[in-house]
């Protein structure tokens, strides 16, 4: 990945949250689902929306909008869950991402992704790999492994201990 040959491109899936377009490496995407009933898991942070039944397996769903501090995702006609496979602490975890809508698959080379400009954004920029531009649309390229920070995973896991 690091070797920079000019024509080396990667496929990304684009989707929107709050009218902004985001991109995610296709390699991380298992499938895209329509919005389905999400069962709440008690005493979890709000952005952990709950769990869904994916053909007999239980998959957690993260509300990205809420995670980014932009309010709760409301169910609408285009609301989708992108099922991703992410390496967290050396363990492959299946995780659903709640998004407003899923757009398309595009190809981008690493050169087309610029590092995140240092601006006073409210959100923690660790999970943003950079900014891309395709067909005159700005894309926020996500670093999916970092969407849940280590401290968040630990917070989730250690929640009970904290309560004790």
């Amino acid at each position: 990945m690091e070797e920079s040959s000019e024509d080396k491109t990667t496929q990304y899936l684009t989707f929107t949250i709050n009218n902004e377009t985001y991109a995610l490496k296709v390699i991380n995407v298992k499938e895209v689902l329509e919005f389905t009933t999400v069962s709440k898991v008690p005493r979890m942070p709000d952005f952990m929306r709950g769990i869904i039944n994916l053909r007999g397996s239980v998959v957690p769903v993260v509300d990205l909008k809420m995670k980014f501090g932009m309010g709760e995702t409301e169910k609408a006609i285009d609301t989708s869950i992108i099922v991703t496979e992410v390496l967290l602490d050396d363990e492959l975890v299946t995780m659903g991402l709640l998004t407003d809508s899923v757009k398309e698959v595009i190809e981008m080379s690493d050169e087309e992704i610029e590092p995140t400009p240092y601006i006073g954004t409210k959100i923690d920029t660790d999970f943003i790999k950079g900014m891309g531009r395709k067909n005159d649309i700005f894309l926020i390229v996500l670093n999916i492994e970092k969407v849940l920070t280590v401290s968040e995973i630990n917070m989730v896991s250690a929640q009970e201990e904290k309560a004790e």
Binding site: S39, V41, V59, L88, V93, I153
Partner: peptide, 27 residues
């Protein structure tokens, strides 16, 4: 009983999840 995976591993007050007749999930 279904395992809820890594993200919920630390919640010991939850044994797991199960899938109900209508396809939804119960804790």
């Amino acid at each position: 009983i279904k395992n809820m995976g890594k993200l919920y591993k630390g919640l010991s007050y939850i044994t797991g999840a199960t899938i109900l007749g209508d396809g939804s999930v119960a804790i």
